[in-house]
Simulated assay, not measured.
Amino acid sequence: MPTEPIADRAVDRSRRRVLLGAAGATLAGLAGCIARGYESDLEGEIRMDGSNTVLPHGAVVSEEFQWRNNRVQIPVRGSGTGAGFQRFCDGETHVQNASRPIFDDGGEDEGALCTANGIEYVELETALDGLAVFVHPDNDWCDCLTVDELARIWETGSDVERWSGVREGWPDEEIELYGRDPASGTFDYFTENITGEVGNIRSDYSASADTNVIVRGVRGSQYALGFGGAGYYYENEDELELVGVDNGEGCIEPTKATIESGDYEPLTRPLYTYFRADALAREEVRSFARFYFEEIDGEATEADIVEPGESLTWTQWAARRVGYYAIPDDQIDDRRETLAGAIAEVTE
């Protein structure tokens, strides 16, 4: 009988950082080769790829599922949202993690590739993330920026070069800017929601595929400004200062309460899991998909991420376990219905 406690098998925040740094590597040792656990009638391989941001969440859910179904193998990769969609729409993977929706505007995009290859899919929001704006801890003037100010700083052709160009009285020092690179779903979300269009960003900032590089850049200069996932800020909060965002309702910082309530706008973003429709015809795949929205068991309720009297599903639990945030309870039934409809189409 398996006795290893659930908390020892879950990915904590420090381990999440390692996983994010290992983007693109196969995590078979984490979520594909679980040697112990409970036997069931299910067996087979389910291939998962996609966003390195969402990778820790998918890895934890798949690990818990495999623990209960130890003849199912789920190797998990994090080759990036865009690269993952390429594989997904080519039919190479069954599950796609994504930090943004699939590009599907009728052009030569990911949706068109899926259509051309006869790949249908179901899109499910499975977690929430907040994008944080942060500065050096010695920055004692900027504790809040409006969305308009952020747009003026970051948009293409921006003439804001110095802090004094943002607000009168701020230091007449050049702003050193750090952010995600154009291959990132984080980049897509930030630019669309701050500057109004995906890819609308100035060219003279330091771009990186690794948010840890952004963190190091900001903590190395008093006059730096950067953005990245809120989890990275909280892993480095002793070395960074959080900047609140004012979207017209006052200055709000990304926290569990403000992100899960939807108050932290416009930088609360949904994270997605896509399942190939034809793969749902396989019992192990549809059982895995349903597992996301099943209630956690008794061991998991003992974790400190579960509040007294709270009832979570595995996708909500895993989101908090790896430093992200749970989708609201009132959305869980909607996700179950969406999934049930997709399953019915391939099984009836």
Rank of each mutant, 00 (worst) to 15 (best):
P75V: 00
N52E: 08
A340I: 03
E168D: 15
C33G: 08
S62W: 11
D304T: 09
E283T: 09
V54Q: 13
L124V: 01
P56D: 14
D330N: 04
G229T: 11
P308D: 15
E192L: 11
A10G: 05
Q73D: 13
L280F: 10
S51E: 05
G130L: 01
Y324I: 06
L30E: 13
S51C: 07
R269Q: 14
P56N: 13
Y233M: 05
R320A: 05
A279S: 15
L177F: 05
D204V: 06
R162F: 06
H57K: 00
V18E: 14
E345N: 02
I119P: 00
P328M: 02
T255R: 10
D104M: 00
S287P: 01
E299V: 02
S287T: 09
Y189A: 11
C251L: 12
P308G: 07
D330I: 00
L339K: 06
G217A: 04
Y272W: 14
A112W: 11
V346F: 07
T126M: 08
S79K: 09
V133N: 00
V243M: 06
W170D: 02
A183Y: 04
G185E: 13
R17G: 10
Q96H: 03
A127W: 15
E197H: 11
I34E: 11
L124D: 01
F227E: 15
R68S: 11
L312C: 00
G244A: 15
E345H: 01
T191M: 07
Q331F: 08
G91H: 09
R335D: 01
V133P: 00
P254F: 04
R335E: 12
Y178N: 09
E161Q: 05
F190G: 02
I119M: 09
V245G: 03
R216T: 08
N69E: 08
Q96F: 07
R47A: 10
P101E: 10
S14R: 14
G78W: 12
W317V: 02
E45V: 13
R36Q: 10
V166P: 01
N97Y: 13
E337R: 12
E310K: 00
A10W: 15
W317F: 15
R286Y: 02
V243N: 05
Q96K: 07
D172H: 03
G244D: 14
N236P: 06
E108V: 07
F65V: 05
I74T: 10
G24W: 14
D188R: 12
D105H: 01
Y178W: 15
C33E: 14
V54W: 12
N97E: 12
I214V: 13
D246Y: 07
C89Y: 11
S203V: 06
A25N: 08
H136L: 02
C251D: 07
Q331E: 14
E284T: 03
I46H: 06
E260S: 07
S164P: 01
A224T: 04
E63R: 14
L55Y: 06
S164N: 08
S221V: 07
T146A: 08
G196A: 06
V218G: 07
S99K: 03
N236A: 12
L150H: 03
